[in-house]
Design a protein around this nucleic acid. Structure first.
Lengths: 381, 381
DNA sequence: TGTCGCACTGAATCGATAT
DNA sequence: GATATCGATTCAGTGCGAC
């Protein structure tokens, strides 16, 4: 196993006499289980892991414009069966648990393909789940075939080493302060990693298929670690964990098998300018006006299916359907499409066009949307 | 096992001759595994399950070998109780899978305490996960001790019976129309069940500790079932699933052990006023409409053989043949194959690609298909 | 230099029917 | 059951070039 030392200044100042054998601010090349077994036990404060998701993709997927989706079909994501994946998962979780300090915590991110197996293995091995945290994506990939809900989130599990470990780090007050003085919730809103943050090679191709956004890691590290802590990432990839750790004054240990990822991570982390802890601010992550589905008005009981809606001049009438569409002249479509159709226009804002009768006066359904927005406001975007 | 019949009018009109043994709109009293084993196999369209996750509610804590677990101190005892929960989970998921139609789907809701075990068991038993859907609570209970993030969501898993089952119900067009004409995402925002909806006893105490909001069930049923479908809830509780099913024109089968819950559910469901059937129709996407052969347009006189068709940018031209094919560059094939070939693509929707000249403006031949469909509908299908 | 339009992209378990 | 054909389907954003 070879070591790639990084960020020498950070490494120098961070060497701890109590744990002389623990390499800091380095990337260890090799298999993560073998690498973790070489580390001293009970030595790291936090583990962040983004393991392979075990996606089981059959054929190619095309967008409606017939372009091909660049799938994550890398060899490291191929497992023969759930049993193989479980064995892999237990092995690295076990090695991770040995390395973790008694009061340390672990974060694992995944999707529905793998997260249930990861969560069950965590529990089986004695970890104690503290929260599951949902990363809601502001800009997820659509479901191109229209056969499912848009897969708009991923799940992180946050767990302590065991049930009785009560001294784990959780910066409750700073999370609350960063969240308009209310408790930080278990659902976080962040964009996916793209634009200038996304690492590209000379050809403009993405270096790593699943690079995570730094904002996500920043909240993880800010909420559940302290300055000077050691954060281990056994699936280091292109080093988002390392870059954020260095920026936030934490030490990192990365483990990665692919030299190309190590090279990219090395350059990336070396370019990071560490901040002092005081200048750190959290991304609020709220959006100006969260979307409210017309269906929500019906689900909330503000509109009954069968209700008749009209335009302000009562020229047209349409019936509210239980599925959140409008029915007019035998045709059934959204509030917007129906409003456009009756007027013979290409587009229409159904929220302001359609009105309901409130004790003799016409009011736009937008007023009901505002009621829903007010009720939902506490939850943020 | 006793049966409590409910909503007699709905039950009468809903009896299906094809499945005489399937009780509809009833609550079956007893253990859900035993009750499901009494139902005919492959008989229900959807299952919604809100299983208990508090291990204490599962009776005395026993390992699978029936040895008693005296304390949950170390992680092996944890594993023992998790194994017990897994056995319980597998038992009811297996019985549920037998009752489910081949194209049926199951929804299971849970929190981080149990959802990972449920999800892994679903996968182990052959279910195929379609989405995990996050219920974001507008008004979750705070974390009183300030040691964790506010637990502000629960997770639902939506799965088909098998990987191969592609014909499951998903009302994609309804959901999209109901959500400002963009796809419905996997994160849903709803308030928790309180206020007038929350069932209380004479003393003002909650009848059931985990009553789910009707709005949540309404979106589940509206997105993934059709009017007239049979929805089974093996952990019926106070009957949210039944109440919403009745309101939305779906049949329900509830299974519940506690008489107090059955009594509350019975009264609650009897008081539900079903929506008018006309307001329950779903948005009909193209997939739901009858297929029309391109030849039919020619036979109907809407297109003359010899007519020239072009793409929207007039880059290519093809000639309509009398046999319902297109001719371009000396080659003759279907509208789809020809469109794909001229663009150098694998696939193409000829209906939207090819246009005809209507007094100077290009219109897609899909418009002519709609005329044929309208005529077919007017003629009574 | 500002605006507009077009091309491109992201952890994706993404048919149905007739022969 | 396997094969062939029909034909249905995308959101939020970045970046570049045209004008």
């Amino acid at each position: 196993m070879s070591r790639v030392h990084l960020a020498p200044s950070a490494a120098r100042k961070g060497v701890r006499s109590a744990k002389p054998a623990l390499p800091l601010d380095v990337i260890l090349k090799g298999d993560c289980v073998a690498a973790m077994e070489q580390l001293p036990e009970k030595s790291v404060d936090m583990i962040f892991a983004d393991p392979p998701y075990n996606l089981q993709l059959e054929g190619a997927l095309h967008r409606p414009d017939q372009s091909k989706v660049d799938a994550c079909d890398d060899h490291w994501d191929q497992f023969g069966s759930f049993a193989h994946y479980d064995a892999f998962t237990r092995a690295w979780l076990l090695a991770a648990r040995r390395v973790l300090k008694p009061n340390g915590t672990i974060w694992v991110i995944g999707s529905y393909h793998n997260i249930f197996r990861v969560g069950a293995s965590l529990q089986d091995l004695g970890y104690w789940i503290l929260n599951d945290v949902v990363w809601r994506k502001t800009n997820p990939m659509p479901n191109f075939r229209g056969r499912r809900f848009q897969n708009a989130h991923e799940t992180m599990i946050w767990a302590s080493r065991d049930q009785k470990a009560k001294g784990y780090t959780f910066n409750y007050e700073s999370m609350k302060a960063a969240n308009d003085d209310v408790q930080m919730r278990s659902d976080w809103l962040f964009p996916i990693c793209n634009g200038g943050e996304r690492l590209k090679d000379e050809d403009g191709a993405k270096v790593h298929p699943t690079q995570k956004p730094e904002a996500l890691l920043a909240r993880v590290l800010m909420s559940a670690s302290k300055p000077g802590d050691v954060v281990l990432d056994p699936f280091f990839g292109t080093g988002t964990t390392g870059a954020v750790a260095r920026r936030l004054g934490r030490h990192f240990i990365g483990i990665e098998r692919e030299q190309a990822y190590i090279d990219a991570a090395t350059a990336r982390i070396d370019a990071v300018e560490p901040h002092d802890g005081k200048s750190l601010t959290l991304v609020a992550g709220k959006r100006a006006q969260p979307r409210v589905a017309f269906l929500s008005l019906i689900e909330a009981g503000l509109l009954e299916p069968g209700t008749e809606l009209t335009d302000p001049k009562r020229r047209w009438t349409a019936t509210v359907q239980a599925d959140g569409s409008l029915c007019e002249g035998g045709e059934q479509a959204s509030i917007h499409r129906t409003g456009a159709r009756v007027q013979g226009l290409d587009a229409c804002n159904g929220w302001t066009f359609w009105h309901f009768d409130d004790a003799g006066t016409l009011k736009p359904i937008d007023a009901l949307r505002q009621i829903v927005r007010d009720r939902m406001a506490a939850a943020g975007g």
